[in-house]
Computed example of a mutant assay.
Amino acid sequence: MTPVDPTLDIERAQLRAAPVVIGMDEVGRGALAGPVVVGVSAVRAEEIEIGFPEGLRDSKLLTERRREALAPLADAWVWASATGWASADEIDQFGIGPSLAAAGVRALASLWEQGVPVDAATIVLDGTHDWLTPGCSAPLHVVTQPKADRDCASVAAASVIAKVARDRHMVELVETHPKWAPYGWERNKGYGSAQHREAIAELGACPEHRASWLHKILAGASR
Rank of each mutant, 00 (worst) to 15 (best):
G55H: 12
T63S: 15
G51L: 09
S87P: 01
I96T: 11
K60C: 11
L61N: 07
W77R: 05
E49T: 09
I50V: 15
A45P: 06
D92T: 02
G84E: 04
W77V: 03
G55N: 10
W79G: 04
K60D: 07
A71N: 01
A80P: 01
L62S: 04
E47H: 07
S59L: 14
F52R: 02
A69V: 04
A71Q: 06
R66V: 09
E46M: 11
Q93F: 08
G51N: 01
R66H: 04
E64C: 04
R57Y: 04
R65C: 07
G55M: 08
A80V: 03
E68G: 04
Q93E: 15
W85A: 02
P53W: 05
F94H: 15
L73K: 14
R67H: 02
P53L: 11
L70V: 07
T63G: 09
L70E: 03
W79T: 11
A42I: 13
A80L: 02
F94R: 15
L73T: 04
R57W: 06
V78M: 00
R65G: 06
A71V: 00
L70A: 12
G84R: 01
S81L: 06
W77N: 01
V40D: 04
W85N: 01
I91D: 03
D58R: 00
F94P: 02
V40Q: 04
S59M: 12
A69L: 06
